[in-house]
Design a binder for these strands. Structure first.
Ligand SMILES: [Zn+2]
Ligand SMILES: [Zn+2]
Length: 669
DNA sequence: GTACCCGGTTAT
DNA sequence: ATAACCGGGTAC
């Protein structure tokens, strides 16, 4: 046994200073350490100390002193170690954990291991990883237990872990006391490290520890001492365990806490999320795709053909496919498209969440989509599983249920895109509530004049209690079918009631009640009559539904059901959603047809089969604005753009081109 | 084999 | 969170 080393991790904010006392310094001081004890303790609120004590093989730590509040520490967490001064104040305790330490070195040449991916690593980051020889599948493993923290990619598990490992986090004491026997290994690449067959298990690279790429030759499972990397990192804020892997990687190459795994799997099943297949591709048709590399942007300059170092390896910024991009990433305010300061793949951000753009090229509008990615599906678009009962009950007391003709508007509206119904959602969006619903018994309808003010409050309540789904309850009092409640999903927005008299063109006839359930799934052949009929049904439902502000449903010749934005104040004024008898829709804006390639077609099922879809569509439209295409209007103008953009890219480019031309002309003269 | 560039990983 | 790097999938 030799000295004690203190590894100090500081808050991100106080980086840099005293590097030598940090991990690097630690390593420099004790390059020969092979085994040690890690002590994690909280000394001060603003600092984390990890003490490392070198121990000999098999040596037993005999530690007196403090014990965890909950009694004996588990064998692996040997005991609290005496830390100087004040460390136990505030209810935190220190424990000792056996770890193996290897001296960091450079990857590469010496042991023939691979260069890690990603940014070049700073030399010698100390990494901590759960030993693969541990029984990670043993059931009652507490994922909150630092002992089970395994770390691989910084951005994934490590981050998860960091959240808990933060020693100024109260949880640490709890977590540690629950620990079980586990081994850690500490290491970074060392030249003298015995190599492994595929040269990967030693890799500090993200997928490293058990990257069975080569088909099961991983040494992790067989070699107890397999060194894994560990990184002490305090900062982390992932909300859930996330495991990612290359498509081709085998399933079990990395460890996910069982519980988290389970959750993940369940979630996956629930959302019916299709396996990701292939990578996304640009549409190849949009203005951007058809463009040539600009040769000026950051990525162009990176390309070999422009004499670049080929480091960034990204597509020309001006060629970022519009179809893909316009979907989810509003462009930065700056409209200067020749910028070279633009950030590197911002698109990475949204890409991650939504992976639907693969198959771009062949997707036609007849294909029904399912959005699975990203945040959980709002509940309203999920199948109701035995929630019927509960729902009713809950509603009874909910403010929403007590108001008539009032829309609840949650305040924090998620991106409308996230509200997309799943492809296979059931047609249960609109449910009839019979008399037994008993809503509103207490004269809840009195509120018709209620301003919008109160709703904010109510909304948040609703949101809080019901999680993340948005539901609008509309009570239609006094109609022939007394006490009828429609439930439609929606999102906050200005809302208005649909005036009854707007639908003048609607023939005055009443579809049978059985059709009031607006559900047109089932597809199949529908004759004209049926189609017209179904439009009527839809119209009828719409008339009873609170729609986003100033959208008015009317029936037009065709037959067509049109939704008009009647307000001149809306950015969507003069926009019409045309729903055809087969419930496919198209959109016109100021008499211009919204091009088929436009996002909204991609983000919505081609057929409107659910009221929710329609509402969602309208809400999404409300987010957009008409491309001003000031001086010129590109033939491929997108018509609707997402602010802060005011002009679509094609128009901008065209404008740009013309400007250039003009400039040249000016020069010539 | 090469060019392109997506998307995971890592530094900051 | 975001900028940067680069392995590797894919089309050719
Ligand atoms: Zn470019
Ligand atoms: Zn494109």
């Amino acid at each position: 046994m030799s000295g004690v080393v203190t590894m100090e991790t500081r808050r991100d904010s106080e980086k840099e200073p005293a590097k030598k006392t940090g991990e690097d310094g630690w390593r420099e001081l004790y390059p020969e350490i092979k085994k040690c004890v890690i002590v994690i303790a909280r000394l001060r609120l603003d600092r984390v100390n990890v003490k490392l004590k070198q121990v000999k093989d098999g040596e037993r730590m005999s530690v007196g002193g403090r014990r965890g509040r909950s009694g004996e520490p588990s064998p692996d967490w040997m005991a609290p170690v005496d830390l100087d001064d004040t460390d136990c104040e505030g209810g935190f305790r220190s424990f000792v954990k056996k770890v193996k330490v290897r001296v960091p070195g450079n990857y590469g040449a010496a042991n023939g291991s691979r260069k890690p991916r990603g940014r070049p690593r700073r030399a010698g980051l100390l990494r901590l990883e759960r030993c693969q020889s541990c029984d990670v599948t043993a059931d009652p493993v507490d994922i909150t237990d630092p002992a089970h923290y395994c770390c691989t990619p910084q951005s994934t598990r490590l981050k998860e872990r960091g959240r808990r490992i933060r020693l100024n986090d109260k949880q640490i004491s709890v977590n540690i006391s629950q620990s079980e026997a586990n081994n850690y290994s500490l290491n970074s690449k060392v030249p003298d490290t015995p190599d492994t067959p595929n040269g990967q298990s030693q890799d500090t690279s993200p997928s490293s520890c058990c990257d069975h790429k080569d088909g099961g030759s991983c040494s992790c499972s067989t070699e107890k001492e397999n060194p894994l990397s560990i990184l002490f990192k305090k900062e982390v804020k992932r909300r859930r365990w996330r495991r990612r892997k290359l498509r081709r990687e085998p399933e079990d190459d990395s460890w996910t806490p069982p519980r988290a795994k389970k959750v993940e799997e369940e979630a996956k099943q629930k959302t019916n999320q299709p396996e990701r297949k292939g990578r996304r591709r640009a549409c190849g048709r949009c203005a951007a795709c058809l463009r040539e590399d600009c040769g000026k942007c950051l990525y162009c300059l990176d390309k070999r053909k422009f004499g670049g170092p080929e480091k960034k390896k990204q597509r020309c910024q001006l060629r970022v496919c519009l179809v893909v991009e316009s979907n989810f990433r509003p462009r930065p305010p700056q409209t200067n498209l020749t910028v070279t300061t633009a950030t590197e793949p911002q698109h990475h951000r949204w890409r991650r969440g939504r992976d639907e753009n693969e198959e771009e090229v062949k997707v036609t509008r007849t294909r029904r989509r399912r959005w699975g990615g990203g945040r959980a599906t709002p509940r309203w678009m999920k199948k109701e599983t035995g929630g019927g009962e509960r729902k009713k009950k809950g509603k009874k007391n909910s403010p929403a249920a007590q108001e008539s003709s009032v829309l609840i508007m949650p305040t924090d509206l998620p991106h409308p895109l996230l509200l997309q119904p799943m492809e296979e959602e059931e047609a249960v969006e609109i449910t009839r509530r019979g008399a037994e619903g008993g809503l509103c018994e207490d004269g809840g309808r009195a509120e018709e004049t209620a301003g919008r003010a109160w709703r904010e409050e109510e909304c948040s309540e609703v949101v809080t209690e019901s999680g993340t789904y948005y539901e609008v309850e509309v009570e239609v009092p006094g109609s022939d079918s007394d006490e009828e409640t429609l439930t439609a999903s929606s999102t906050p927005s200005e809302v208005t009631e649909v005036p009854d008299d707007v639908t003048a063109s609607c023939p005055a006839y009443d579809p049978p009640n059985s059709l009031e359930l607006f559900s047109l799934l089932g597809g199949g052949a529908m004759d004209e009559v049926t189609c017209g009929w179904s439009l009527l049904c839809l119209l009828r439902v719409l008339r009873r539904t609170v729609l986003p502000a100033h959208w008015v449903p009317v029936l037009a010749a065709g037959p067509l059901l049109q939704l008009l934005q009647c307000s001149k104040l809306s950015s969507m004024s003069d926009t019409i959603v045309h729903v055809q008898p087969d419930h496919c829709f198209y959109i016109t804006v100021q008499s211009r047809l919204l091009p088929d390639t436009h996002t909204v077609y991609r983000t919505h099922t081609p057929r409107i089969t659910q009221l929710s879809q329609l509402v969602s569509l309208l809400l999404e439209l409300e987010r957009l604005t008409v491309c001003r295409g000031l001086r010129v209007r590109s033939p491929t103008c997108c018509v609707l753009v997402a602010p802060p953009c005011l002009t679509c890219l094609p128009c901008l480019l065209q404008e740009e081109e013309e400007e250039e031309e003009e400039e040249e002309e000016g020069r010539m003269n």
